[in-house]
Amino acid sequence: MPAAAAAAARGPLLHLRRTPPPPPPRRSFSSSGMRCVSAAAGAGGGGRERRSSPAFGGLLLDAGGTLLQLARPVAQTYASLGRRYGMSKSEESIKEGFKRAFSAPWPKTLRYQGDGRPFWRIVVAEATECTNNDYFEEVYEYYAHGDAWRLPAGAYETLRDLKDAGVKLAVVSNFDTRLRKLLKDLHVSDMFDAIVVSSEVGHEKPAPEIFKRALDQIGVEASKAVHVGDDETADKAGANAIGLECWLWGQDVRTFSEIQDRILTRFPQ
């Protein structure tokens, strides 16, 4: 600790008539411990200052698959909820059906219009071969609550520290109207300076409009922000198209601590 180092440097007072040595460097830290200022006074007052400063002024985050992780696999949830409705497909078959339905071309402009029910109804039916409306509603409501989701390790702490460092934060997500409630349930909604949801703004990634909307709301230029998402096309290609750097979750960055380390970098002032 800087204070401890300073204390250790002070030995017993000797009553000698000599010029005292220059004072030790003074250091101050923010609450995050990441931003520090260190100044050393030279004999001629020509000390240099090093300041920790964010490498980016804004961070945009994808929601599903990046900031929001499933508490348990989709196939497991679909199977367990489906037993009461006579659905007996294996989890492996459900998993394959889900992937097939989710990746199929969508004929409309947006997958998620309003609450997203039309899209999700097709996905659930394709994955499970169960068209019981009560079953669908139970599945849909299950994912409308924070208990169905979790934050990656260190996400909350990273968001807090980046915010303390002055980095503007935004969610940019292809999602339906359940997203805002989910972020509140997981206690991160208030962390963000902007939450931009495709079903609300009428554009979904990789369309440039959704990224531009987020940047406008946080007041940061594309060249001074970075986006983190898990999709090569929707996230990386979409962001890069407007000059916005993108780190793919699971490839370029694997933890929120790594995101924090890459944004909060030190350089000479």
Rank of each mutant, 00 (worst) to 15 (best):
4 A>M: 04
6 A>M: 09
6 A>W: 03
7 A>P: 00
7 A>G: 02
9 A>R: 03
10 R>P: 00
10 R>H: 06
23 P>F: 08
28 S>F: 07
28 S>H: 13
30 S>M: 06
32 S>Q: 03
33 G>F: 09
36 C>A: 12
36 C>Q: 08
38 S>P: 00
39 A>I: 04
42 G>M: 08
43 A>Q: 11
43 A>V: 12
44 G>C: 06
47 G>Y: 00
51 R>T: 02
52 S>F: 01
53 S>G: 02
56 F>K: 12
57 G>W: 03
58 G>F: 07
59 L>Q: 10
59 L>S: 07
59 L>M: 14
64 G>I: 11
66 T>D: 10
72 R>V: 13
76 Q>T: 12
80 S>R: 14
81 L>I: 12
83 R>E: 15
85 Y>T: 07
89 K>T: 05
93 S>F: 01
95 K>E: 09
96 E>S: 07
98 F>I: 02
101 A>D: 03
106 W>S: 07
109 T>L: 11
110 L>E: 08
112 Y>G: 00
114 G>H: 05
116 G>A: 04
121 R>H: 07
123 V>M: 04
126 E>D: 11
126 E>I: 01
127 A>D: 02
129 E>V: 00
131 T>G: 05
135 Y>P: 00
136 F>I: 02
136 F>G: 00
142 Y>A: 01
143 Y>G: 03
145 H>V: 06
146 G>R: 02
146 G>V: 05
148 A>L: 08
149 W>L: 12
152 P>R: 08
156 Y>C: 09
158 T>C: 15
159 L>N: 01
161 D>V: 06
162 L>V: 06
165 A>V: 06
165 A>T: 03
166 G>H: 09
166 G>D: 05
167 V>P: 03
169 L>S: 09
170 A>I: 08
171 V>M: 09
172 V>E: 09
174 N>Y: 11
182 L>S: 10
183 L>G: 09
184 K>I: 14
185 D>F: 10
186 L>C: 15
187 H>M: 12
187 H>R: 15
196 V>I: 15
197 V>H: 01
197 V>R: 00
198 S>K: 01
200 E>F: 03
219 G>R: 11
220 V>M: 10
223 S>Y: 04
224 K>V: 03
225 A>F: 04
226 V>H: 06
228 V>P: 04
229 G>I: 08
235 D>I: 10
236 K>Q: 15
237 A>V: 13
248 L>D: 06
249 W>F: 15
250 G>C: 09
256 F>Y: 13
257 S>V: 10
257 S>D: 14
262 R>Q: 14
264 L>C: 05
265 T>V: 15
266 R>L: 05
266 R>C: 06
